[in-house]
Computed example of a mutant assay.
Amino acid sequence: MRGKKFIHHHIFSSIWSSVKEEVPTILENSIWLLGNGEDINFWNDNWCGSILSEVFNIPSHISQALTSTVSDYLYNGQWNLPPQLAQHYSALSFLVQKVTIPTVSNPDKLLWKHTDSGDLQLSDAYSFKLQPLQDLHWAKLIWSPDIPPSKSVLAWRLMHVKVPTDENLKISGCSLPSMCSLCCKSEESSFHIFFEFHFHGGYVEDL
């Protein structure tokens, strides 16, 4: 962030590209604590429990042009909504009045909803993104003391579609001609290698 705003230009970092993808998630799960109101977009930031542009169904091409801050509607420590605005959006005054104006003019603060302190620590982000563990009934069959670890890893990668076959390389964005190096007859895929032919007498026998 720079000046309490998320930057959009490129910076040299090994993790920033992945962090930027999570910005919408962070904003969806955060709320602004009102201070002086200078850093909070009145219409497009969540500072009163809801995003006002969504509450009043303001089209996105219009809401993107709304740049007024909360401080624009404060005067002498009180709410100062234009009468025309309050008349057009009848519920606006009710939503705004629910937010207490602080007596001390502190900077606005973005709070994470899922912690008591409002701070977002790395451990909190990890717990939030952690998916429920799957109960894989076949896992104990693969990870067995009787099976060499290298074979267990291969089976695990096969079950998770992670074997580096031409088929999976294409899914990852690699454009290449594909031919099975064992039979030289079909495209290389996990299903073809493990289920469509078998080895017989040291030779590959196509099924």
Rank of each mutant, 00 (worst) to 15 (best):
D45S: 09
N44M: 04
W47N: 06
Q64N: 12
D45Y: 09
I51C: 10
L81R: 05
P83C: 09
F56W: 06
L52G: 00
Y75N: 14
W47C: 01
Y73M: 11
A86T: 11
I58H: 06
F56K: 00
W32V: 07
E28T: 08
G77P: 05
Q78W: 11
F42W: 13
G35C: 10
S60M: 10
Q64K: 15
P82T: 13
W79F: 05
D39Q: 11
D39H: 14
E54D: 15
Y75A: 08
L27I: 13
I62G: 05
L74Q: 02
N80H: 10
P24H: 05
T67Y: 12
D72L: 06
L34Q: 01
I58G: 01
P24E: 10
V70I: 03
G49L: 03
L85K: 02
A91L: 15
I40A: 10
Q64C: 12
I31G: 06
L92E: 00
E54R: 14
P24G: 07
P83A: 12
K98L: 12
P82S: 03
W79E: 04
S90D: 06
H88S: 14
L34A: 04
S90M: 11
P82V: 11
A65M: 15
I58T: 05
S30M: 03
N57L: 15
I62H: 02
V70D: 02
N57R: 13
L27E: 06
Q97N: 15
N36K: 11
F94A: 09
W43H: 05
P59K: 01
L85W: 07
L85E: 01
W79L: 03
W47A: 01
L85A: 09
E28Q: 15
Q84P: 04
W79N: 00
H61M: 07
N57D: 14
F94N: 08
C48T: 03
E54H: 15
T69L: 06
W47E: 04
N57W: 14
G37T: 14
L66N: 05
I58S: 02
L33H: 08
W43M: 03
I40P: 00
S93P: 01
P82R: 08
K98M: 12
S71G: 01
V55G: 03
Q87S: 13
A86L: 02
C48K: 00
L95A: 03
N41K: 09
Y89K: 04
W32T: 06
N36M: 05
W43T: 04
A91Y: 10
P83Q: 14
C48P: 01
Y75Q: 12
N36E: 14
I26H: 03
L92R: 02
F94S: 10
L74R: 08
A86C: 02
E38D: 11
V70M: 03
H88Q: 14
F42K: 01
C48L: 10
P59D: 08
